[in-house]
Nucleic acid binder design. Sequence first.
DNA 1: TCTGCTTGTCAATACTTGCGCACACATACT
DNA 2: AGTATGTGTGCGCAAGTATTGACAAGCAGA
Lengths: 120, 120
Amino acid sequence: MAPSDSDAIFSALADPTRRAILSLIGEHEELTAGEIAAHFDSLGRTAVSSHLRILRLAGLVAERRDGRFRHYSVTPTPADAVVAFLTSVYQNSLEQLASAVQGAATSEDTPAGRVEERSA
Amino acid sequence: MAPSDSDAIFSALADPTRRAILSLIGEHEELTAGEIAAHFDSLGRTAVSSHLRILRLAGLVAERRDGRFRHYSVTPTPADAVVAFLTSVYQNSLEQLASAVQGAATSEDTPAGRVEERSA
DNA sequence: TCTGCTTGTCAATACTTGCGCACACATACT
DNA sequence: AGTATGTGTGCGCAAGTATTGACAAGCAGA
């Protein structure tokens, strides 16, 4: 029971920079704030720090303090709120969604673009 | 499909009112703008119209014009971008996501599952 | 120890974006 | 006509973002 969590998660995911940060962390295991900021030359460290703060408050990333470094990693179970929302909306075509997710899980190379339209 | 679609979709999903509208439409088959506005007494018709416009531009809802009415319905394949993003980030815990989606799909015995009428 | 440097965040400021409302307009039924 | 449905426009207000400057925390070397 936490609709506000969904709000924080979707708000955090609304910014493309934050999604890029999340993808970047997801590609690696852990990344420090400096390494993340290094990938976004157009952004300063303070901006990246703010984004990481929002992602952390939304529960999307976890922070591990190691000396003066702070290693960030993706939280393993944050997609629940997203899935819950998709469930409430796309009940009809949820089977296709499930198959799409499974297909993506088996081969992460899948472009995830084949959900056949059902006409009945 | 351009990556800008993801941007529009996530931006559209960022607003809780829009998510509520989407859930509302998902519960029913089709809803007119007036019916949707009736469920949100705190909002005016122009606000609802603006939200519907954003949802429509993001490809999340489809509009069927019937006389002076405009019936809105959820598009069956908008979650692809969301799934694609989740795939890129949560590759490790994607099996859990798939199981969660499947569980949600099987538990809910789609009452009147009919998503159709997709016009250009 | 003490100084210097790096890492990362906090505070305050200006800028941009987005939401909601009131008004008016286009469309379409009776 | 007259009325209902729905959207486009302009305005005011709020929220979010990136930058600059400064601070707390921690490592390395003499």
